[in-house]
Design a protein around this nucleic acid. Sequence first.
DNA 1: ACTCCACAGGAATTGAGGGGTG
DNA 2: CACCCCTCAATTCCTGTGGAGT
Length: 395
Amino acid sequence: MARFAQGSNIFDNEDALRDSYTPDELIERDEEIRTYETALQPTVNGARPRNIFVYGETGVGKTLATRFILNDLEADQEYFDGVSIRVEWLNCKDLTSYQTVTQLVNKFREPLNEISPSGYGRGTVNRMLWDELNTIDDTHVLFVLDEVDSIGSDDDLLYQLPRCNDNQVTATKVGLIGISNDFTFRESLSARVQSSLCEHEIHFKPYDANQLRRILEQRSGEAFLGDVLSGDVIPLCSALAAQDTGSARHALDIMYKAGSLAREREDTAITSDHVHEAAELVERGVIEDELQALPTQSHLVLLAILKLHENGEDAVRRKEIYDVYEDAAKRINTDIKSPRTIHNRLSQLSLKGFLAVTECNEGVKGGKHYDYSLDVRAKIVEDALCESQRIEVLL
DNA sequence: ACTCCACAGGAATTGAGGGGTG
DNA sequence: CACCCCTCAATTCCTGTGGAGT
């Protein structure tokens, strides 16, 4: 018998449940779209574009809505008089401010002419960008910087770009649309950047259960065969995701996972049992993926806390963790980092939600310190560490 | 009211690794 | 070749913190 066979008793087109899938119609974001239209109106009229800052949690339709509205804008411009708009889209994930500029420059250059991502001075690459902007034919350029928060604290670009029309760039009117899912990012910007980047702000709220239900209805029609969904599947997926994140991606993940469980077991329909199981798997999967993606040093820190946890010590301070860490690092022959570095790892891990931190102050006896404990189930951490060959031997 | 512990966490520096120009 | 730029992790140095104990 063949190992692989085509066909499914559940899915028609499972891609319709994926994040990257673009549905024909955008639903449940009417309010945000209207705000977008208002913010883009100056561009249509030929004025300098207003800079727009879009924010909201992951999976609430920011990127999709932006794509829809800019597609419409590009399509409609044939009716505009004397206005030609060019849209350049860049995902800033894993890029620094400097690298972002070089990538923007390369958007305007032929492949053979592209500049390398390092080596020039800051001012040089900025000048290259202004030159490109001054020489293109279009009257307007809209830059969309998706996941703009990953540029980090260096806000030179976010300062320069929104005001390049003031002196460096005269031939083209430039607008910036920043998309971010980090609410703290806006606050972390300096005041001068905030005022220019955030001329218009559009906040995408999390979806509620009703909205998620309609989104799932939209997608499931295409994704599943006939009537494999039991009546309560869509409401249940929506409710679970709405409670937890309000993210459409989350709801779609649960529904997809429920579908694959049913397919694996050759069941003829998806039931609420599949959904409950799927929701658990999705949650666990997210945590495990993130844990596995951490570097070895962070794994060692987690290992140290896990060991202490197994010895019944739940709330441990930095020094105890460091001693166990040091021992573990020695045994697998890896670099032993300084306490300050481990301290950074610890705060990183607690920021990501893997560790719970309690501030303690014992005055003269102990001074002020933090107590760390695991904030996810020990079994999940253990499973994730098992996946790393270097760490596995220590368990 | 003041001291003092044991750290927290910011700032500056270093060093290795990516690359550029003339 | 000499000299320059950007990046990132790691390190050193240093100041800040706040309540139990005096």
